[in-house]
Every structure is written in C-alpha cells, then in structure tokens.
Amino acid sequence: MNRGDALPANFDIPVRVTEEFTGNVTPLLHEVRHALGALLDKGEQTIIDLRSMPLAPGEEAHIETALGQGEVRVELNALGRSDIIETQYPGVWLITHSNTDGTILGKYIEIALIPDILQAQEGDIQAGLEQLGDTLKTTSTENDNGTS
C-alpha cells in the first residue's frame, strides 16, 4: 500500500505557506548572476549545492520557477536518473540527481558551458574503445568465416 493511501482523500495537513520564509532566494539568484559573469569573463565554472542551504517548503520550487526553462533538456541514466536542464539563462544549468527509486539525492545549479557530468568520461571512452575493438574483431572473424 502506498503511504498516501493511509490518509483519507480529503485529508489536508493544515500548514499553509503564506510567504517567503528564509529570504535565501534573492541572494541565491544574485550569486548565480555573479557566477554567470565570471563564466563569461574568466571561463570560471561554478556549482551551487541547493541542498546545502536551509530552504522553507516551496522555496526550492520558487528558485526553479525564477530560473525557468531553456532550450536543452537531458536525461541521464547512471546510478538512477539525472535531469540536466538548461534554464532560460544560457550557461545556467539545473541538475537533479535521483536514485533508481526516483528519490532525489541532490540538486545543483551549475554555471558552465556544459555540465561536467554530460561530457564523456575518459575511463568510459577507454572501455568503449576496447568494446568497439572487440566487436569489430568478432565481426571481421565472422565475416572471414563466412567467405571461406
């Protein structure tokens, strides 16, 4: 049974979010703006860990709304799903790491030309190269067998 099923359908936890609580949202957006400037001027990359600051219920959503959605949307499948979304401000990426159950493990704002995790990794390329080599070797052996 789902945890939610234990509660009656009309059950409403009577806590309303009436206003912005912590005041962390605006300073965070300023931080993003500075980081974006640094990326343009000095090529400096910045990652902000959204889960490292106390946010009131609803504030995380508020940040996401403020950043909006841009042109790129990538879904990554490694150790569970990750969503990498370019926000309406090019160079500002919102990265959400989830595990295989879909539980969110971490949320980050990355200010970069392209987020590190999207680039193919050396170790994986090496492994892929070997695998491709093996495949080609097998195919050519098969072909050789077929013609003779």
Partner: peptide
C-alpha cells in the same frame, strides 16, 4: 556496474553528504 558518470554523480552527492562545497568534487 557503475559508470564513470555514475561515479561522478556519486562523488557530487558524497560532497553534499560531507557538507563540502561542490568545488571539492
């Protein structure tokens, strides 16, 4: 069977776990 990307993801969340800045990843 965890790829390098998965490993990076693991490191990023480990940094959060240790309350370290993402620059430490």
């Amino acid at each position: 069977g965890i790829s390098r990307r998965g490993f990076l993801k693991f490191c990023a969340t480990t940094a959060s776990l240790m309350a370290l800045p993402p620059t430490m990843i």
